[in-house]
Design a protein around this nucleic acid. Structure first.
Lengths: 128, 128
DNA sequence: GCGATACTACGAATTGTTTCGTAGGTGTCA
DNA sequence: TGACACCTACGAAACAATTCGTAGTATCGC
């Protein structure tokens, strides 16, 4: 009976989740290979991380084959929202506006992206 | 010679920084009192945190009085931008647009705030 | 069948975070 | 002056995160 929702992933865990979102269900070997393109790490390190992440409920493990196959429990969008919500509470006193302002200021977006955001604003204002 | 920029604050450190941003320069006693309105904590715990944060360069300490006075090294905006930048890299592959979308979706903003964001968009588009 | 290879499990070392008790010094005031 | 309150420094405990070596077991190629 593990009901409680998975905890917020650490930075390292998030890096592994990002590999899994990219690859889809994958073995330790596959994750390790992909992970090492950016970050040199031992095989058993990745294995251990995935084992711990399984205990935490961050990933699910298929043990039907000898090489276990791992996949994320939550979607990338879901975790992104979780992390944004956390940052919102911790650093911005819950003000999404302030966070959005900082995000737009801290990294230039393309005109296309800005237009996309504008479209979302239209939609939100219509709902209100 | 401590040149390197202060590290990303932990959640607890951030909570203390938020108190300092609210109060301005403050003694351990003042920070402790304010902090405890939300989170019950021992006096020496807050003291130790502030000592560690001083070593890390997150806060500056004025020792000219018997009760030392602490203040943040970086502005709230600066740290907010730092944290947004970090989240952007770690969870959003650098796409500010995706982060903004999630922020707006995860917490309803008031029409006034949406208008404010729209104004920022206007400004950014004019620059481009 | 046997040696090489691949895989998981486990334990342990290291490092960082958080909490708080205790000790020692300084000031206050009756 | 002596009791008391307040302040900082320090060390240690408890916990979590990260890394990796070693051991044990299964599988494959010959």
């Amino acid at each position: 009976m593990k009901k409680s929702p998975p905890p917020k992933p650490t930075d390292t865990e998030l890096a592994i989740l990002r590999v899994l979102w990219r690859l889809g269900p994958a073995t330790v070997r596959a994750v390790h290979a992909e992970f090492n393109r950016v970050q040199e790490t031992g095989y058993t390190t990745v294995l251990k991380m995935l084992q711990i992440m399984t205990e935490k409920g961050l990933v699910r493990r298929d043990e039907s084959e000898r090489s276990h196959v791992y996949q994320p429990v939550l979607s990338e969008q879901h975790v992104q929202r979780q992390l944004v919500g956390h940052l919102l509470d911790r650093a911005f006193g819950g003000s999404a506006q302030k966070l959005v302002m900082q995000a737009l200021a801290s990294k230039k977006s393309s005109p296309r992206e800005l237009a996309e955001i504008r479209r979302l604003l239209d939609k939100l204002e219509k709902e209100a």
